[in-house]
Design a protein around this nucleic acid. Sequence first.
DNA 1: GGACGTATGTTCGTATAACGAACATAAGTT
DNA 2: AACTTATGTTCGTTATACGAACATACGTCC
Lengths: 252, 252
Amino acid sequence: MTKGDSEYVQTLARGLSVIRAFGPNHQQQTLTDVARRANLTRAAARRFLLTLKRLGYVKSDDGKYFSLQPQVLNLGYAYLSSIPWWDVAQRYMEEVSAAVEESCSAAVLDGTDIVYVARVATRRIMTMTIAIGSHMPAYVTSMGRVLLAHQEDEWLDHYFAATTFAPITEKTVVEKSALRKILAEVKHQGYCVIDQELEDGVRSIAVPLFDRAGKCQAAINVGTHVARVPKAKLISDVLPVLQAASRKITAA
Amino acid sequence: MTKGDSEYVQTLARGLSVIRAFGPNHQQQTLTDVARRANLTRAAARRFLLTLKRLGYVKSDDGKYFSLQPQVLNLGYAYLSSIPWWDVAQRYMEEVSAAVEESCSAAVLDGTDIVYVARVATRRIMTMTIAIGSHMPAYVTSMGRVLLAHQEDEWLDHYFAATTFAPITEKTVVEKSALRKILAEVKHQGYCVIDQELEDGVRSIAVPLFDRAGKCQAAINVGTHVARVPKAKLISDVLPVLQAASRKITAA
DNA sequence: GGACGTATGTTCGTATAACGAACATAAGTT
DNA sequence: AACTTATGTTCGTTATACGAACATACGTCC
């Protein structure tokens, strides 16, 4: 066993793949389903499922179908509660939301996606349901573009080399050089407005959330519908509120 | 090795305890911290941390401090996205929130606690930050009491035998027979109003969310401040909206 | 600079934990 | 009844994971 491998516990990795085998179209599954999706033998999948059941992460009423239990949320919550700025960000985001009467969210990068880590929702803007834990591609969201804009050049080169940019609406910018130009602008102006590139009718503005060392650790945004708030008003009225909130969160 | 033990993968259990070792006061920890909190040897903790790092769940910039990564949220999100009624509940809860102009949440039982699985927050009511994944003791929340009220008698006997009911505010009901009486009333009337038992000034009303088989699978609530909504108005104006939403979610 | 305390990194012999093939059984469908 | 698809169980095997012990690093204190 090589040095690299002796530091890797494949039983843990396999066990976690069992949790990941569940999802929207796989709410409850048979043992054989899980084994297939997690690429395990049936016997191994069975042992993992029974272990997770003993630990309270999985249940099986009839012995045939398995489903995840709410205790799995505690694993994710361990991450949320370990974000140092999470509680204070929530408070200032509530102020933002109240001031501008729109939804306010915070997200961090997770690979090539953003993942929502905080949210104050006034009303639904998008058709998809957004909650803490939801993922969206970074290149097509205002928070994602802010986060991308503040990545190291080397990381960005790798990102652009490895990512396929598919159009989602008629307005989605997918050309790499155009995207790079946008990111440079975002970096320079300190905010990003995105207009109906992820979904028709949806417009949002985001700013970076820096830590005390000046590193961009998250982004916060306000999302609205194009019928409600013109782009110019987003910049003139919403941006100052968002920037003020970001500074307060950093300072807290 | 006995039969029971051969179905239990202790390496997975131990690996998960590493994730659980992180939290609000343990945002970043040394290897030795994690080993201590997870009750592992340093060598084992190190292998698990390096494995979780390889999988993207943990990071360590300086090789000394470890912290959780947003990818951990995906584990919790696997549970949320596997709740069959989650998306449709979110939509109707948004309607409730818009109609009554207060926050609306959904929760399920997780041991003796409730855990929030959906939330539409209009404004802050409580001092503590509530998000998906947040826990609260069931006995002292409206949703918790609804969920307790619909548990099997045997389970309830066990619950009352095993739980200590500490007062949190001056109004917290902690006497077991009084609590049992309240639960019986909640079951009978089909809703629960709770008044400042978890926190001064906080009042909420909750109803059960049944599945199609008539089993109580969650509870939804509206929370408000005592200064804003009298109890009688909660019952006369908010309850019908909440009950209608619950029926629609069940029927969807 | 040395002593001390607290941390991480590494090795490797060991044991047992986990493995999976193979078989038995169960349930549903045709 | 035959077939398909599923779970339950066993147990010989092995390689995975273990942890004690040692080396090294870093920070603090004197």
